[in-house]
Amino acid sequence: MADIRYTEDHEWISVEGKVGTIGITDYAQNQLGDVVYVELPEVGREVAKGDETAVVESVKAASEIYAPVGGKVTAVNQALEENYGLVNEDAAGAGWFMKLELSDPAELDGLMDEAAYAEFVKSLG
């Protein structure tokens, strides 16, 4: 089973082998409201942990998505272009943004696991 980690910016990363799939959490999509656009990075781009790699937009808000870990973009979710609503309908699944080939899996250690993230969200009230 894939290991899913979370950031304080409400992104999730699900890692299988060397490849991590990245999206935003259900809490995040709920806060944003109806997602109308996602600006995705170019495949092949190298990103460092914390780099701005995508932008997710609702009607009234735009949020930068920062790479939770460093790596190389190997794929982006083409299905979003047809239906940005996937982010709202299935943030943790079909609404994923991109896949990264991790440059340093140890960077995952700094991220929250599911229980810690649930606790974090609770603390936001």
């Binding site: 656009y37 009607v59 009234k60 808000a61 735009a62």
Partner: peptide, 12 residues
């Protein structure tokens, strides 16, 4: 497409 604009995007 207001997310291009200053009232939402501010310095970006």
């Amino acid at each position: 497409l207001s997310t291009r604009e200053q009232h939402i995007r501010r310095e970006k």
